[in-house]
Design a protein around this nucleic acid. Structure first.
Lengths: 118, 118
DNA sequence: TATGGTACTGACAAAAATGTCAGAAATGAG
DNA sequence: CTCATTTCTGACATTTTTGTCAGTACCATA
């Protein structure tokens, strides 16, 4: 008798559990996305220029691209004010804010583990 | 009077909070790493071939590479038995297991949010 | 008319991640 | 001797991600 049924069930569970994971990853992957989310988490509403200053080192092209991605995925909200010179503000959406716990845990885990030699 | 001090303090806090994050990201980034961790989380100890079967779609070169990365980062442990044909077993280290909560939360967040239109 | 600030865009190039495929070492089975 | 099995390795190509850099549109201001 093989334990195939239970094993398969386990596999399926693993794979499906990873599917939610896959979405999370797809939404968060990108060199600057977590930083951007972090800035908005602490900073509230920020203009494009403020984000650019905070994310020192990022190229403008990438900053825009990642902001667009985050907006398309519903994690942040963009509001353009019809003024000259332009003013565009970004802030976390409700969905974006719901990542707070995870981001904090990831940050804490990193702090706890980054120094340790394996 | 500018509120520069408090703003700077905030920025510093944000950046440092992201540094732990940066480590976490560096350790988890890689298309298959989270899947591998998931398999080992549920499967306990697995041989190379079992992982290969579970992670259907991954190329052997990548599987090896990511296993090496995970081992180098101390998240998994590799044990090679001196037999022929070879038998190599992988399992989570303590450090690897300590990611369980985060992985579960990420998975759950994905499940909760993947269907929602932004 | 010229200048300056803000939020972008587009073409091109470099770098990083991943895939493909062929093969290697070791040894027991036939 | 030949073959099969298992766990990898290395050369090379392709895909994906990121960087560089020049330029645009708008209008208030000088």
């Amino acid at each position: 008798m093989r334990k195939e049924t239970s094993t398969n069930a386990l596999n399926k569970e693993q794979i499906e559990s990873m599917c939610g994971m896959a979405y999370t990853i797809s939404v968060l992957s990108g060199r600057w996305k977590l930083s951007i989310l972090g800035f908005l988490l602490d900073g509230g509403t920020l203009r494009y220029n403020e984000l650019k200053r905070k994310a020192a080192g990022i190229s403008e092209r990438m900053l825009i691209a990642q902001l667009k991605d985050l907006e398309a995925d519903g994690l942040i909200e963009r509001k353009a004010h019809p003024e000259v010179p332009p003013r565009v503000e970004y802030k976390l959406s409700k969905k974006g804010k719901s990542l707070e716990t995870i981001l904090n845990l990831m940050s804490a885990w990193g702090e706890d583990n980054k120094g340790i030699r394996p």
